[in-house]
Design a protein around this nucleic acid. Structure first.
Length: 487
RNA sequence: GUGGCCAUAGUUUAGUGGUAGAAUACAGGACUGUGGAUCCUGUGGCCCGAGUUCGAUUCUCGGUGGCUACCCCA
């Protein structure tokens, strides 16, 4: 046997893997293992020298790789179709926001942990994705944008002319158990309006919210917005019960729509509300007509809240078919101070599509100059569930204008040249698989190419190509000059 | 954080205590200068670990992951 010497360079990692096989006595040495691999590769499957344990090791490696490929919990991939859909939806949001003259902002994905945890209690702290500590600083991924936006606002509050109208369309992270309409990484569209304490500002963001849904084709048959006022609710409750337990009661009221009547009574009894007051609370939160509320308002707070609510509804008269007064909408977050609202699908099948309200104290909580603010946030996950149900997911035509079919190698270069010429203006796909013509047509058909350009030696000699319309199936010879001119 | 259901090719799934079929998708051929149909071929799989067993993809337990409800919530 004639032997030749050959030098092969291997990566460290690969050598380590091979060493493992040697350690297991599957091979006597590294070079023996390499020789065997080469033999297998050259001789093919049939003649390979099968070492059962080596096969097992290979399986294990395969499984390990598979495990590494696992996507983190609560995240989703956007394949081209989904990406196109999302882009189309986001474009519509953007268009609406811009028509309202809101300006888009973006904040860092992570912020100082202390900033993120400042406004909220323990609950939200557990939901923050914290980053590994580097030096003295601790960071966390943003879980909403209200806080970072407030930071941005405060940094420039002296120079910004009011009202400041910002919108965002970006992703957030929350460490939670995923469920329908909720992920750990999610997209949100929303607005923040700083500097106006007038009902006009609230009406503006609510109006924008409604128009955003409408831009997607949703109508008053598909969604509605529950509106309430925290001052009103709080004032009404204070009229019924002694102070102190108000916030606990509000949190029970907030979930009323999710639980049965009996459970609602139970919850209130547990926090020591007596039966008489339970009935009073029920009566109050079931009021649907704004004119009826007045007779229950026996203190300044509730009167003030009622006035605010009234003027907002007045300003939104043109959209009243989308609005519903709901005194049980409280929203959990403690920082809301006035109007609060939530958008739902008409059957309330899904969780809230969007939510927001007025938060006049937040800026000063972060040591900014006291500034009133209002806004909303809308999640993409729940929204897309509703759009899917209503058949309103936008379909995007991603098909190319041309597919360039190549007859043989002789004309390949020329075909590529034609492609790059056409690509100055058109969407062009070209054969990258060296397929035969039949399969090239099959492929062109599959990707929905509108026309196929056949580049063949015969026509090319006359400076021409064949162009076939895939729909009419008609074919014509076109000179290259005309082809470029007409496109 | 708590509970329920589930885990088999890329996807949808059938099935079994003796390591697995189908449909679809993908690649190719029939048809090397013409697509959507048809036929054929190929590629590709039992989530991980431990236990029971001669033998586990199947049974048991644990883990991981998915879906979902609760908690909470923009």
């Amino acid at each position: 046997m004639v032997m030749e010497t050959l030098q092969i360079r291997l990566t460290k990692g690969l050598i380590a893997e091979i060493q493992k096989l040697v350690d297991k006595d599957i091979y006597s040495s590294i070079s023996e293992a390499v020789r065997d691999s080469v033999r297998r590769l050259v001789l093919g499957k049939e003649d390979k020298i099968v070492v059962p344990e080596a096969k097992e090791v290979q399986e294990k490696i395969k499984k390990e790789i598979k495990k590494q490929l696992q996507k983190p919990t609560g995240t989703i991939d956007f394949y081209p179709e989904e990406m196109a859909t999302r882009k189309a939806i986001f474009r519509k949001f953007m268009a609406v926001a811009e028509r309202y003259n809101f300006k888009q902002i973006e904040t860092p994905a992570f912020e100082n942990l202390s900033l993120l945890t400042q406004k909220e209690g323990e609950e939200i702290k557990q939901q923050i994705f914290t980053l590994e500590k580097r030096g003295e600083e601790e960071f966390g991924l943003r879980f909403d944008i209200t806080v970072p936006a407030a930071r941005m606002f405060i940094e420039k509050q002296k120079e910004l002319s009011r009202p400041v109208k910002w919108f965002y369309l970006t992703r957030m992270w929350r460490y939670e158990r995923p469920q329908q309409g909720r992920l750990r990484e999610f997209y949100q569209f929303g607005t923040e309006l700083f500097g106006s304490n007038k009902p006009e500002a609230d009406a503006e963001v609510i109006s924008l919210l409604i128009d955003s849904f409408r831009a997607l084709g949703l109508t008053e048959k598909d969604f509605f917005v529950k509106v309430n006022n925290r001052k009103l609710l709080q004032g009404l409750l204070e009229g019924v019960i002694e102070k102190g337990d108000i916030f606990e009661i509000i949190s029970v009221i907030d979930k009323k729509s999710k639980i049965t009547d009996d459970e609602f009574d139970e919850e209130l009894k547990r926090i020591k509300v007596n039966e008489e007051n339970i009935n009073k609370i029920k009566t109050i939160i079931n009021i649907k007509d704004i004119n009826e509320i007045k007779e229950y308002c026996n203190n300044d707070l509730s009167k003030e809240g009622l006035e605010e609510l009234k003027s907002i509804l007045n300003l939104l008269k043109g959209k009243k078919e989308f609005l519903r007064i709901d005194l049980s909408t409280a929203r959990g977050l403690a920082y809301y101070t006035g109007i609060v609202f939530e958008a739902y699908d008409k059957n309330e099948k899904y969780r809230a599509l969007a939510g927001g309200g007025r938060y006049d104290k937040l800026i000063e909580m972060f040591n900014g100059e006291p500034t009133p603010a209002t806004g909303f946030g809308m999640g993409y996950a729940t929204l897309s569930l509703l759009l899917k149900e209503k058949g309103l997911i936008p379909t995007i035509d991603s098909s190319p204008d041309y597919f360039i079919a190549i007859i043989n190698d002789e004309v390949r270069e020329k075909a590529i040249e034609i492609a790059s010429n056409l690509r100055k203006k058109c969407k062009v796909e070209i054969d990258l698989m060296q397929r035969n013509l039949g399969n090239q047509f099959k492929f062109a058909n599959k990707i929905g190419a509108k026309k196929v350009i056949i580049v063949g030696p015969d026509e090319l000699k006359e400076g021409k190509v064949k162009v076939k319309d895939m729909e009419t199936r008609k074919e014509e010879e076109v000179s290259l000059d005309n082809l470029f001119k007409n496109t």
